[in-house]
């Protein structure tokens, strides 16, 4: 065995405790949940002993359940899109600026991550309420004559989730854009590229890894988020996470709740794998 191989084995040994913890803390609960989904519901809080796919069949054949999955993904796509559009210019600026305000700006970007989800959402509720600041401002500016429903609905969840996850998108993009050599852009401009062409054909393709990374993080956190849909959706918005919670906490149907959780996890994993492959192919 060469010296490097031996070194690699030793590093591998060091990773063992973490792998063991991960297996215990994540692997076992997921395995037990998956097992629950493969048996019948036998009364409140009871999983039966008949091995069956009936929970999955129920999920796949009922438009209502499929609709929840669609809504969850719709939320994910809307939030990712808004984060990309809002985040890209900020990230580009942060990556290229030499301003002494850069540190302050960076802090402002990260600020939402320093506050817990519950507190952040509690802050949004009075701002977005019927008699809240945003509605007051919209009416004072004459943009609307009656209050708009900004919270306790899908829009409220989008606003809260975008606010929470925008930092991830900006940080991912900033890191990648910083690595794009500014001379490449200068070269493109020197060769006669318009600013738009420079952006679409040079900067954007080169920042693809950041976009994919940001998309992965923002999308997967959005589709699995629970607190914000529960708090800003007014218990009107059903996404997979709130539905799973309802099935397990209130209906006490562990088998079906586990099924929905497994479906969500499987789709999230599939999307992550697809995006990673896409990004590898791109680079």
């Amino acid at each position: 065995m060469g010296r490097f191989a031996a070194l690699r084995v030793r590093w591998g040994l060091l990773a063992l405790p973490v792998i063991a913890v991960l297996l215990l803390a994540f692997g076992m609960p997921i395995a037990s949940m998956t097992a629950n989904s493969l048996f019948n519901h036998a009364g409140p809080g009871r999983v039966g002993s008949n091995l069956t796919l009936v929970n999955y069949i129920n999920f796949a054949t009922d438009p209502y359940y499929l609709g929840i999955l669609v809504d969850t993904f719709a939320l994910g796509f809307v939030v990712v899109s808004i984060c990309t559009v809002l985040g890209y210019p900020v990230a580009y600026f942060l990556a290229r600026t030499h301003s002494r305000w850069r540190g302050v700006l960076m802090f402002l970007v990260i600020a939402p991550l320093l506050v817990s989800a519950v507190i952040r959402n509690l802050g949004w509720i009075p701002l977005l309420g019927t008699n809240g600041f945003v509605n007051w401002a919209l009416q004072a500016l004459g943009l609307t004559d009656r209050p708009i429903a900004l919270v306790n609905n899908f829009l409220g969840v989008v606003i809260g989730t975008t606010h929470a996850l925008l930092p991830f998108m900006i940080l991912m993009l900033t890191t990648v854009i910083q690595r794009i050599n500014p001379q490449i852009e200068e070269a493109a401009v020197n060769l006669g590229a318009t600013p738009w062409k420079n952006f679409t054909q040079v900067v954007l393709p080169l920042s693809m890894p950041g976009l994919i990374g940001g998309y992965l993080i923002v999308f997967t956190i959005t589709i699995s988020s629970y607190t914000t849909p529960a708090m800003l959706g007014g218990h009107r918005v059903t996404v997979m996470s709130t539905f799973v919670a309802q099935q397990i906490r209130f209906v006490l149907n562990y088998a079906f709740g586990a099924t929905c959780a497994v479906v969500l996890m499987a789709v999230a994993i599939a999307l992550t794998v697809m995006a990673t492959r896409q990004s590898e192919r791109g680079s």
């Binding site: 309420g129 019927t130 008699n131 306790n152 218990h235 009107r236």
Partner: peptide
């Protein structure tokens, strides 16, 4: 309805805010 409440304290705050 404006929303479906799960907490009385939250509902109380919304009565107070006039929502």
């Amino acid at each position: 309805p404006l929303y479906f409440y799960t907490s009385s304290s939250d509902l109380r705050a919304k009565f107070r805010a006039g929502d």
